[in-house]
Every structure is written in C-alpha cells, then in structure tokens.
Nucleic acid binder design. Structure first.
Length: 425
RNA sequence: GGAGAGGUGGCCGAGUGGUUGAAGGCGCGCCCCUGCUAAGGGCGUAUAGGGGAAACCUUAUCGAGGGUUCGAAUCCCUCCCUCUCCGCCA
C-alpha cells in the first residue's frame, strides 16, 4: 500500500510516476473521498468525545448520589446521530482502503518506460552460448528419452496438464539442485534457512500483495477456512515479520527457503504448453531480506548477485534485465529478471525475478523496526528473489548440457550432490 | 473430534461495569547520589489515526468480530489462537 498521506500531499506527482506502470491514479476521486472522510471523522470524534464526557459525569453524579435522569436523557439523544455518522465514516474509509489496496507500488526512477517485456533493458550478459554441431533437442524431448527422466504423460493421467513426474536420476538432480542452492545461500551468502507452511491465510496474501487483485492466479482450498496454497515462498517468509516491531540490531533478516509453489496460471493457456517451463506446481529456493529503508536498493543488487552466483556456479549462460514499467509486478518498485539461455528456444528465459518492494509490503503487513535515531517504529523495506526456480534450472541444465547422443552433462558443482554421477544417459 | 484452562503494554503480571491507556514488577532512557564497582533515589517510558504553524487537543486499541449499556478489559454471542487431558493419526 502507498502512504495515504503521500497521496494526499503529492497526489499529482505520484499519479505521474504510476503512469510508468500503466496505472491511472484517480487523484480527484481520492481528494473527494478524503474530504468526506475528514468531515465525517471530525464530526464523529467530537460526538464521541461529548458522549465520553457525559458518561463520565454520570459515573461521578451517581457516586455522589445525585439525580442522573436528565443527563442520561441528553446522552441518549445523541446516540442515533453518532451511529449514523459512524456508519457513514466507515463506508468512506472502506472505500478508501479498498481503492488503496488496488493501487500498485510506485516504480523506482531507474525503471525504464515501456508496455511489455520488449522494453526491458538488458544490463548484463554472462557466459558463453555454445555452438552445437548437431541437431539440438528441447528439454522435454531429452527428458522423455531418458530412462530415468521426465514423464509428462503419466503426470497428465495423475493430475492433468502442466504437471510432471520425475524418475530416478532426474528426480535426484532436482533434489541436488535444491540442496546445492540452499547450501550456497546459507554457507556462502549468510542466509538462514527457514521452512514454512505451504498453506497460508488471506491476511498473508494481502500483506505481500497477491490479494485482493490476483485471486484467480491462486489455488484456494475448499471449505470455509479462507486458506490458499502458496504461489511463492515470498508469501509465508515475508509475512514472518507481519505485525512485528523488529529490534534494529536484528536487521537485516536474511531468509532462504525451499518450497513448492502453486499457480493456477489462469490466462496463460497458449504459453509454454510443452515441458516444464510453466507448471501448476513447481519448486523454488527463495531469498527474502527484511532491511532498513536506506539499505533496500543496495540489498536488491546484493540479492540479485546471490542468485546470479548460482547460475555462474552451474555454468549456465544468462542475462540480466531490468523490467520496464509495464512488465513490473504490482508490489515491486524495481525488478531484475535473470534469464537463462535455452538453446532449443534460441533465447533467454526467466529463471529468477529479484525485486525491491520498498515499504509497500511492509505497510500492508504492519512490519516495522525500531529506528534508534528516532526511537520510533518505522516501516521496514522488503526485498526478495528466486535463487533459483528449480524446475527451470533443471530445464536449463538439460538443454545446455545435452550431447549428440542425448545424454546430459551434469555441472561440476552438482556432481558431489549426485554421488559422483557426471552424466545422465 | 470430545472435556477443561487461558489469551491484558517490549516482557512478566493485577484488574472492581464508571476520573483505567490500564496497578505492581522487569527491562529501557534521562537525571541525582556514591571518589571505582555494587547498591540506592527521582523522573520518564505503547501504537495507530485525525485536527492544528505549534503548544496542544481528540478518537480508537486489553486475541478478532458482533451485541447489551449513558458508559465494557470487565457482562452476552460467534470465531481464531495457545496450553492440559482423552480419542485418532504421520
């Protein structure tokens, strides 16, 4: 959520910035609603104050043994007016917050203009894209040909499209990737591993910004209990600090978490129908940092570098892009996507998304820290990124490591995690 | 699923339908005293919102949401969570 005060005082400037994100802030409507709110709040509060004063007088008069019938009547007569004012005030306040909950975060000054991914700006390329002197296959083909490989058909039988069964060494490679990434982030990059619920309530999803706007992307559990499968570990991990005031010396909090992620992928029917690129269920190692406001930009760079390090160790060629306004996520102020080279598609595909959310999620979550300079609780900043998406990493290893006979070379760093196995064949 | 107990400020912990934003303690901050240290004393110490240039005024908050009442931490209802015992289960 944006700071309501800021909308009040610098609405026009914010509206201009939000245009980069293709969002039209209705400043006039907000001003109008706020004017109503102000009037109603003043009236309501002064009525309440009056009632409180008189009620206290009743207490005193009663204790002194005086007659209270007259004052009782005078306060009784205020009741109806107070009730209606209260109701009106609540309606206006609800309208304001529900509008505010739908306003995205303001993009950082670095964010380039543009409507879609075509306008994303490349900032770095790493690694050599290999030349293959044989006809290359895509990961699905490679995986299905392996005896211990990928099995989309059986997954479709078990569940439906966009699921996969991994057998034997493919499953082991998948597990090795998780282990390797967690080890690297906890041992080399200073993150603390955390294991969290895969089911969350709506409050958590409101906190990180998936709700109320993006409910159709989520799997909701049946029953009356208001629970959802997580679309990313970002939700439970970031919400660890919801409704908390964190001691300054505990910051930054650095969490690494491996979870499955569930996405209904509504509205993406045509895209990536084949293979493991886009699944309803996939796994991810997620990095989350809770930081002091002044550090968040620097931390985004660091955290992105931590994700990049994984790609480098796996010797996978990638590029780094900064997302343009139109492609930037709802709650993010700035996002770097890491895109890995996929030979079969002759292009780079997203494998990690690292974002700074400034105080946007923190305000929704009431996540604060005690600033020693002011002595006051102030909103933290949140930063997160995938480090990395496991399934897509497996895809990249299959495709980049393929050999003419259809076998797949396992990156050196993973060999120990595969108990010495160097080749999938 | 059944039975019981409980949820109060950064923490512990009292609490009567009425001047309780909430005793007391711990912690924390400032100050005093003590030639160091320990001990002691004084004062202060929640959060969010609104109005105001400011001083300051004001509203709300005792798990959440409703209700009763002139007035609710206190009474009633619903829900959530924690603990103990039983059942079931990995």
């Amino acid at each position: 959520m944006l700071d309501p005060k800021r909308i009040r005082t610098e609405g026009e400037a914010l509206a201009k910035q939000l245009l980069v994100k293709k969002f039209e802030l209705d400043v006039a409507r907000m001003e109008n609603l706020d004017q109503q709110r102000k009037t109603l709040q003043l009236e309501t509060e002064s009525l309440q104050n009056e009632r409180n004063l008189r009620s206290k007088m009743i207490g005193k008069a009663k204790a002194a043994g005086e007659d209270i019938s007259e004052i009782l009547q005078s306060v009784d007569s205020m009741k109806a007016e107070l009730e209606t004012k209260k109701e009106q005030l609540h309606l206006v306040q609800e309208e304001i917050t529900s509008y505010l909950m739908g306003v995205p975060n303001v993009p950082d000054d670095d964010v380039p203009e543009g409507n879609d991914e075509a306008s994303n700006k490349e900032v770095l390329r790493w690694g050599e894209v290999k030349n293959y002197d044989f006809e290359i296959k895509d990961h699905a083909e490679l995986g299905e040909a392996l005896e211990q490989g990928l099995d989309f058909e059986t997954a479709a039988k078990l569940t439906g499209s966009r699921f996969v069964v991994m057998h034997g060494n493919a499953a082991k490679l998948h597990r090795a990737l998780i282990q390797f990434m967690l080890d690297t982030h906890t041992l080399e990059h200073g993150y603390t591993e955390v294991n969290v619920p895969y089911i969350v309530n709506s409050q958590s999803l409101l906190g990180t910004g998936q709700l109320p706007k993006f409910e159709e992307d989520l799997y909701k559990l049946r029953g009356d209990h208001d629970l959802y499968l997580i679309p990313t570990a970002e939700v439970p991990v970031t919400n660890l600090v919801r409704d908390q005031i964190i001691d300054a010396d505990r910051l930054p909090l650095k969490y690494a978490s491996h979870t499955p992620c569930f996405r209904s992928e509504a509205g993406s029917y045509g895209k990536d129908t084949k293979g493991m690129i886009r699944q309803h269920q996939f796994e991810k190692v997620e990095l989350v940092q809770i930081v002091r406001p002044e550090d968040s930009n620097k931390v985004l760079e660091e955290l992105t570098a931590h994700a990049e390090k994984i790609l480098q160790l796996l010797e996978l060629p990638y590029r780094k892009v900064i997302l343009c306004g139109g492609d930037l996520g709802f709650a993010a102020s700035k996002t770097y996507d890491l895109e890995v080279w996929l030979p079969s598609q002759d292009t780079y595909r997203e494998i990690s998304s690292c974002s700074c959310f400034t105080d946007y999620q923190a305000r929704r979550m009431h996540a604060r820290w005690r600033n020693p300079d002011s002595g006051k609780p102030e909103l933290v900043h949140t930063v997160n990124g995938s480090g990395l998406a496991i399934g897509r990493t497996l895809v990249a290893i299959f495709e980049n490591g393929q050999q003419e006979d259809g076998s797949i070379r396992i990156p050196k760093v993973l060999v120990p995690y595969m108990n010495g196995l160097e080749l999938l064949s």
